[in-house]
Design a protein around this nucleic acid. Structure first.
Length: 297
DNA sequence: TTGTGTTTTATTGCCTCC
DNA sequence: GGAGGCAATAAAACACAA
């Protein structure tokens, strides 16, 4: 039933369309039937009463388009249900004066068209979503870029400030010479300090040096001012030394602790110095290290 | 009128389901 | 194995610009 070529279709057409109560018959079928002999008088009379206009078009075996009303009716049925039950198909074919096969083919083609349109709709929807997403992405990218620039500027500014403060400390330092000289001076001064202040502590209460820390007794902590010793260092230079030590101490607390513990943080994330932007402010050439301050470490 | 692109109808071959 | 669906395709009908 499903398979028939164009030669078969005429025979199938004739066999199908021996209508008992058909009111509408396709012109193609009508013409075919007209040419066929052996129908009852009643059927022949019905055929004769059919629209002569349609029959005047000689059937050439070519395709014919469905009528507007037929298409409208089929569309209406398609809206309700896009697949046909065999009974419904037969009924519809009967109502519209078409072969059941024609109805089936029409539905099949209609489903194909619907699918294509649906795919186009889906594509448009997806494209719209994609475009919207792309716009958001680009906006975020621009925002990201602006923030990166800002971070870069802030890093540079911070570096400059650190460099400036480092420079000012360098100028303020009593050890303007090479670091090794500074270290020598420090050791020398420390020895003097030990000698002088240690003796002072001993002479004061006769106690041993055990209560003193690096020559400074517990009681001496918090003293507003003290002298490093009578030999070689004046009062003003010792003040300067004390200030330098204080500044350096604060400085090391403020920066070196973080910088010397890279295992706890990502430098590029948590310090203003990325690997390529580091100011190297602890380098020998630029600023004094604090080795001299704790030579035993 | 004609060439060309689009739409519609119909066929074919393959697949799945019962 | 038959019925029916689907994808691919052929071919006719139609629309329209040149």
């Amino acid at each position: 039933m499903k398979r028939f070529g164009s030669s078969d279709s005429l025979g199938a057409l004739i066999s199908i369309c021996a209508p008992k109560d058909a009111t509408i018959v396709n012109a193609e079928e009508k013409c075919a039937e007209t040419n066929h002999q052996g129908y009852s008088k009643e059927f022949q009379a019905m055929l004769d009463s059919l629209d002569q206009e349609d029959c005047s078009e000689e059937f050439t075996g070519k395709k014919r388009r469905l009528g507007t009303d037929q298409v409208k009716a089929l569309e209406k049925y398609f809206e309700v249900e896009n697949k046909l039950e065999p009974e419904r198909k037969a009924k519809l074919a009967d109502e519209l004066g078409l072969q059941p096969r024609q109805v089936a083919i029409w539905f099949q083609n209609r489903r194909a068209r619907w699918k294509t349109k649906q795919m186009e709709k889906d594509y448009s929807l997806l494209k719209a979503n994609y475009d919207s997403l792309k716009l958001s992405y680009e906006a975020l990218q621009q925002q990201n870029e602006a923030l990166r620039k800002q971070v870069k500027q802030l890093k540079a500014k911070m570096c400059r400030e650190i460099e400036e403060s480092s420079q000012s400390m360098k100028e303020e330092s009593p050890f303007s010479g090479h670091e090794s000289n500074a270290l020598d001076h420090t050791r020398e001064n420390k020895a003097e300090f030990h000698e002088t202040y240690g003796n002072y502590a001993k002479s004061k209460d006769g106690s041993s040096d055990s209560d003193s820390i690096n020559g400074v007794t517990k009681e001496d902590h918090g003293k507003p001012e003290f002298s490093l010793g009578p030999k070689g260092l004046s009062s003003s230079s010792s003040n300067s030394m004390k200030n330098w030590i204080q500044i350096s101490d604060n400085y090391s607390r403020a920066f070196s602790v973080k910088i010397c513990q890279p295992q706890f943080m990502r430098m590029e994330d948590q310090t203003p110095f990325s690997s390529d932007e580091s100011c190297n402010f602890f380098s020998v050439d630029q600023a004094p290290t604090l080795h001299w301050y704790f030579p035993e470490q």
